[in-house]
Design a protein around this nucleic acid. Structure first.
Lengths: 203, 203
DNA sequence: ACCTGAACACCGTTCAAGT
DNA sequence: ACCTGAACACCGTTCAAGT
C-alpha cells in the first residue's frame, strides 16, 4: 500500500527508492556502461539526497551486485522460456538455448560483464547462487543429449563448458565489434552444428 | 643519450616520463584492473606533478589506448613465437597458437579487456590497426589448414571466427572463475580437437 | 526506519605560469 | 619542449542531525 506521490511533490520519504535505484541503474548500465553509473547521479535523477541510497545499498558494489543478481534471474527466465517453446529433439533444443543465451549476452552486454565479474568477488555469494540456476539448466540439457545418444557419454562438464565458452566468445566478438551483429545467429547455428558433429559418439 | 638521474635527485625534466607512465600503468592494470588505474596516482609514483602526464597522453583514454596498442603488438609476437617452435603439421600448429592465445588472454586479463574495448572506439584506429596483425595470423593458419585438406574449403572467416570465439570464451570462463585455471590447457586442447573433427571435409 | 547536509579524500581536466 | 600549481567540477563514503 505505498502511496505514489503526485507529480512535482517531493515527500521526505521516497517510498520506492530501492526499486527506483535498481531500475534507473539498469538503464544507465545499458546506456553508458558500468563506468557511467554514478550513485550521486542516480540519486539526483530520483530527486533524493546523494546519501539516501546508502540506506538500501551500503556502497556502489552492493548496487552492482544486486543488478548482477537480478541479471542471472532474468537470464534463467529467458533460457527456460526458450526451452519451453521447442520440441523434444535435442539438436533443436540446443539451438534454441544457444541462440537465446547469445542474444541475451549481446543485448545486455554491460550487464553480462557485471554478472560474471560480481560472481566470484568476496561477498558475491548471492550472485554466485543466482548463477547456479542458469548453469544447471545447460548441464541438464547436455545430460539429455547424452541420454539420447546425440553426445558422447562421459562427464557433461567438459562438453558443456566448451559449448558455453563458444557462445560466450561469440557474444564477446559481437560486443567487441569484431563481428557485425547480423552474423550472430548464423555463427551460433554453425557453432552448435559443429559442436554436435564434434561431440557425437564415434561411429 | 638520455641521462638517467641519480637516486634521490628529481630533475625538472623527468626524461622518461612517457615510457615510465606506460610501464607503471601496465603494472597497475595487472594488479588492480582498469578501475584501479589513476593518472594522478601514476604521476605520484613517478614523482611528477599530476598535470605532467598530459604532455604525453591528452587524457586517460589516450593512455589506455596506448596500452591496448602495445598489447596487440605483444600478442602478435607471442603467437608468432608459438608458431615458430612447431612442426609443419596443421593440427600441431593450431594447438600451439590456440594454447598461446588463451594463455596470453588469461595471464593478461585486464589488458585483453582493454584491447578489445579500445579497438572500436572513436579514435581507436591505431589500436584497430594493431589488432589486424594478430587476426591476420589466425586467418593465414586457417587457409593453410584448408590447403592441407584438414578443413573444409570455403571462406575461412566463419571457421576462424568460431575457433577464435571458443578460445576467447575459454579465457573468459577462466578469468571469471567459472573454470579453474588448471583446466585451461585441457579445454583448449579438447576444443581444438573437436573443432578439427567438426570442420574437416565430409567423407 | 528513512532521509538530509556538510565534510573528507579522492578523481580527471584545464590553464596560466614557470624552467 | 616539458613540467608545475592552483582551480573546477565531479566522485564515493562517512556521520551527526533532522522527520
Amino acid at each position: 500500500m505505498c502511496r505514489v506521490p503526485e507529480t512535482g511533490e517531493r515527500p521526505y520519504h521516497h517510498g520506492h527508492l530501492r526499486a527506483g535505484l535498481l531500475q534507473a541503474a539498469e538503464r544507465r548500465l545499458r546506456e553508458d556502461g558500468v563506468d557511467g553509473l554514478s550513485l550521486r547521479d542516480l540519486a539526483r535523477e530520483l530527486g533524493v539526497s546523494h546519501a539516501a541510497p546508502r540506506r538500501h545499498f551500503p556502497d556502489r558494489r552492493a548496487l552492482l551486485d544486486a543488478l548482477a543478481e537480478t541479471g542471472f534471474a532474468r537470464l534463467d527466465t529467458v533460457l527456460r522460456a526458450a526451452l519451453a517453446d521447442t520440441a523434444d529433439d535435442f539438436a533443436v533444443r540446443l539451438q534454441a538455448v544457444a541462440t537465446a543465451y547469445t542474444r541475451f549476452a549481446t543485448e545486455n552486454a554491460a550487464l553480462l560483464e557485471l554478472m560474471f565479474r560480481s560472481k566470484h568477488r568476496p561477498g558475491g555469494e548471492r550472485v554466485a547462487r543466482a548463477a547456479e540456476g542458469a548453469f544447471a539448466l545447460v548441464n541438464e540439457l547436455i545430460v539429455q543429449g547424452q541420454a539420447e545418444g546425440a553426445l558422447q557419454a562421459g562427464e557433461p562438464e567438459q562438453a558443456g563448458l566448451i559449448l558455453f565458452a563458444t557462445l560466450q566468445g561469440i557474444a564477446a566478438l559481437v560486443n567487441g565489434d569484431v563481428v557485425p551483429p547480423e552474423m550472430r545467429d548464423g555463427l551460433v547455428e554453425t557453432a552448435t552444428e559443429q559442436f554436435l558433429r564434434g561431440a557425437r559418439p564415434l561411429p
